[in-house]
């Protein structure tokens, strides 16, 4: 489980971010004392730091500079300053990513996920039963058979897989797809879902995706 350090001086916002990340299976630590920020961040040894820019005592940029002298930990800058210049500056100080406020939860989660993935990029595969999912190639492999999926179908499958065993509403699914730049409408989702089911049957996975009337879909 990845450990994420939240450095944000607004208490309510900090708690909401913490609750969001806790809920999505991350271990979180929050910084409440901003006097020795750099030491505190480094000593708690996180996998990733969410760093606000406007902070008391040291600014986020200064903290980032100090961190970079000693550590290569992943840092995502969170800021309400949203000029191109701020972004370029942050990246030049060594930030791995930059998100401007108000950020939307799914976007934040996707950014965190993709940054953390860099750490384990060699094993960038997901698994479902005995099926290996390869997002980079957009394929599924089972018992030596390879199944090619379209971008939309892969998106649907990955999302269902992330929530395997629980019901996923059409709304949630659409939101996720749109956040990953798959802009499909309602009808297309139905069509793609049917195609995905047929394709899964080709490699012997029958009826793994069930429709729960009025609720959504579930990957068993």
């Amino acid at each position: 489980m990845a450990k994420i350090m939240i450095v944000e001086d607004d208490q309510t916002l900090r708690e909401e971010v913490k609750s969001l990340l806790d809920h999505h299976g991350y271990e979180t630590i929050t910084l409440t004392n901003f006097i020795d920020s750099v030491e505190e961040i480094l000593s708690s040894n996180p996998d990733l730091v969410l760093l606000d820019i406007t902070l008391p005592t040291l600014s986020g940029e200064q903290i980032l500079k100090e961190i970079r002298k000693k550590s290569d930990v992943f840092v995502i800058m969170l800021t309400s300053k949203n000029t191109e210049m701020d972004e370029v500056l942050s990246m030049s100080y060594g930030a791995d990513d930059y998100i401007s406020k108000p950020y939307h939860p799914t976007i934040l989660l996707l950014h965190i996920e993709s940054i953390l993935k860099r750490r384990e990029h060699h094993e960038d595969t997901l698994k479902y039963q005995d099926v290996i999912v390869n997002p980079l190639k957009s394929t599924l492999e089972r018992k030596g058979q390879t199944l090619l999926l379209s971008k939309n179908e892969l998106g649907i499958f990955v999302y269902l897989l992330k929530h395997v065993g629980t019901i996923v509403t059409r709304d949630d699914l659409m939101n996720y797809l749109w956040d990953t730049n798959v802009f499909i409408d309602d009808n297309t989702l139905t069509v793609n879902m049917n195609r995905l089911r047929k394709k899964l049957e080709e490699i012997g996975l029958e009826n793994v995706i069930e429709t729960r009337r009025g609720q959504g879909y579930i990957l068993l």
């Binding site: 309510t12 916002l13 909401e16 971010v17 609750s19 969001l20 406020k101 108000p102 939307h104 799914t106």
Partner: peptide
């Protein structure tokens, strides 16, 4: 934008 971010996160949570 700070309270706004909080509101958006609250809606999600």
């Amino acid at each position: 934008k700070i309270p706004l971010s909080t509101c958006i996160l609250m809606m999600h949570n």
